[in-house]
């Protein structure tokens, strides 16, 4: 019960004594990365973390989990959302729903495009965005349009142009301006 018993903990370099105790549990480890993975703190503030706790281990916490949430009745069955006659809204016909889609803002179109792959609405929003002079880049999987302030310079072989474009970044959910070398066969 004296100090001598602590020597193996203090003197870790010596192999004989070091193996006497499992240091990961006794001495532990620097907790900063564990705390960081928990979101403690987040944005320099203290937030609750247990309500969005994914798993006790960082390795099994690779996706967000849906926290508890409450939808008041007044938020459900709202009529005329997205210009729809039916509640909840639906888009089942390329032919009949084009007019409704023309009334949506750009961001609503982007939202619907990315949120509903392989559906009528993805097709409809594609068509409408093209009408508004947005073009879809096949490799970047992002939409872009010409920056009106600059005229692009077409390459000598006519296969590309270099210019300034406004991209819509679906990760950050914002428009951003970029200089870019645009290959015509990459867009649709």
């Amino acid at each position: 019960f004296g100090l001598k018993a602590l020597v193996p903990l203090i003197k870790q370099e010596e192999r004989e004594t070091a193996s006497l105790y499992d240091h990961s549990i006794t001495l532990g480890a620097d907790l900063s990365s564990m705390l960081h993975s928990l979101g403690i703190p987040r944005d320099s503030k203290r937030h609750r973390v247990l309500d969005t706790f994914q798993s006790p281990w960082a390795e099994t916490s690779r996706s967000e989990v849906e926290p508890k949430f409450f939808i008041p009745d007044s938020f459900t069955n709202i009529p005329q959302v997205l210009q729809s006659q039916t509640t909840p809204p639906c888009f089942n016909s390329v032919q009949h729903d084009q007019q409704r889609v023309a009334l949506f803002q750009d961001e609503t179109l982007f939202y619907l495009f990315y949120k509903h792959p392989g559906t009528v609405i993805q097709e409809l929003t594609y068509l409408e965005l093209r009408k508004r002079n947005w073009r879809y880049h096949k490799t970047l999987k992002a939409w872009l349009t010409k920056d009106p302030k600059m005229e692009p310079v077409v390459s000598s072989d006519g296969l590309s142009e270099r210019g300034s474009y406004v991209f819509f970044d679906p990760q950050r959910w914002e428009k951003c301006q970029r200089e870019f070398l645009l290959f015509y066969n990459a867009i649709m």
Binding site: P88, P89, C90, F91, N92, V94, L112, H116, P117, G118, T119, V120, I121, Q122, E123, Y126
Partner: peptide, 8 residues
């Protein structure tokens, strides 16, 4: 679903 499947 908001929208029926469609080949895109």
């Amino acid at each position: 679903p908001l929208s029926l499947p469609h080949p895109t």
